[in-house]
Design a protein around this nucleic acid. Structure first.
Lengths: 227, 227
DNA sequence: GTTGAAAATTTGGTATACCGAATCTTGTTG
DNA sequence: CAACAAGATTCGGTATACCAAATTTTCAAC
């Protein structure tokens, strides 16, 4: 058995179900039912729900079932605002403190993405994209910073994913990543700040777009709610 | 009874005990004993421990008792690094989005601190200081940002407190706060960035100092560990 | 037919009991 | 006397049972 604790495994499962869309925003998560589904008891399920809730993917309501979070445009914009700041700080610190091995690892990821972007499955592509950003956060050698970064990345995962599969902007993403990598190689803090700014500006636009559209859909659905 | 949930109340209690020093770094928190102490069962105590652990005040160890966190100098420095960035972003956003009421509230806090700093109890003084910083984070009108801010503030609470009571730098703190308030009033993002930078630079030095000293003590104590 | 109140059901909150792993004790052996 | 092994104990992990609040449903009265 893995060294991962049971609640964490359940949390991963929940996260994946939410991010992949098996659990839609607004769905309720009754701890009894969910626990029965996975064949575990309520205690670890409860803890798992708290874990994911703290990440922002689940909303806890007093005396009600937790539900899958339904971020509105403002919430997502706020998250991007923080993510931008966190990534810029990561980039700056990485320029100072990244080891050569760190940079090499990031280069490999970038290369891999560049080589396969025409053929790759959107989901795989996307996970590589995520790992690129995480690698930079790790290269800051500031653990709490990396932790916050991964938390906000997770919050935006779903929106980013929806944005990524719709748009045909893969080449743009790769260009941005290449620019970030170049700045890191040169250990040029100013350049990496600008490159990250450009990249996340684009992201911000794409995401706001997707969320706006989705909220429209949800609104429509709510208007005819019968079930 | 308050609308605060039981685990949260327990978490507050734990936090206060840790921050006030009733629970020293390294002390173990056996959930059975702790639960019995407060006359509650293990379930809410367990959840409370997780809450505080996630804030960074408690360290969870696999298959062992959780212990009160013992941050080293690097950990604290990392935290300050993040806090600085978060506060700067808060300040910038507050310059754009704070309402007049927000600013007035911050002014009142500053004023209060200025009026009473010669007579006030260190702990009260300190809580006012905290509320000043929290008020600025809130004035950013970015909720996830404010949440992160409060988390890092909590992590550093103890170190800041130890630093604050030792030093006779209250006048300096007030000068800094006044400068931050002035920049906010002028909605001058550049000025507030600088003012916050100055303030937290000072903090960083003070905190590193205290932690270094404390680690020395703990080291000494560990060398003769008998109990 | 609609409205309101009461009862039943659903659901999260809390307590407790059980289990297995890790640790500490103790006794035996070299 | 030291070292190691086996048993006892401690403690976190998990399951389950009970409780109270909130919602929903149903039945009665207007």
């Amino acid at each position: 058995m893995s060294d991962q604790t049971l609640p964490e495994k359940i949390a991963n499962q929940l996260r994946r179900d939410i991010l992949r869309g098996r659990l839609a925003p607004g769905d309720s998560l009754k701890e009894r039912d969910k626990a029965a589904d996975l064949g575990v008891s309520r205690t670890p399920m409860r803890e798992a729900i708290r874990i994911v809730a703290r990440e922002g993917l689940i909303t806890l309501r007093p005396a009600r079932s937790p539900i899958v979070a339904m971020p509105d445009v403002k919430a997502v914009t706020d998250d991007v605002e923080v993510l931008l700041s966190v990534e810029k700080l990561s980039g700056k610190l990485a320029c100072e403190r990244a080891t050569d091995a760190d940079i090499e690892g990031i280069a490999v990821i970038t290369q891999h993405m560049d080589n396969n972007f025409t053929t790759m499955d959107p989901l795989d592509m996307f996970e590589i994209d995520m790992s690129f950003h995480s690698a930079i956060a790790k290269a800051s050698h500031n653990e709490p910073l990396a932790e916050i970064h991964s938390r906000f990345l997770a919050r935006l995962w779903r929106a980013r994913f929806l944005a990524a599969i719709k748009r045909r902007n893969r080449t743009k993403v790769i260009a941005h990543h290449t620019a970030i990598l170049a700045a890191l190689r040169a250990r040029d803090a100013v350049a990496i700040d600008a490159a990250i700014g450009t990249h996340l500006d684009q992201l911000s636009k794409d995401i706001a777009d997707v969320i706006r559209r989705e909220h429209q859909d949800l609104q429509d659905k709510a208007d005819q709610q019968a079930d």
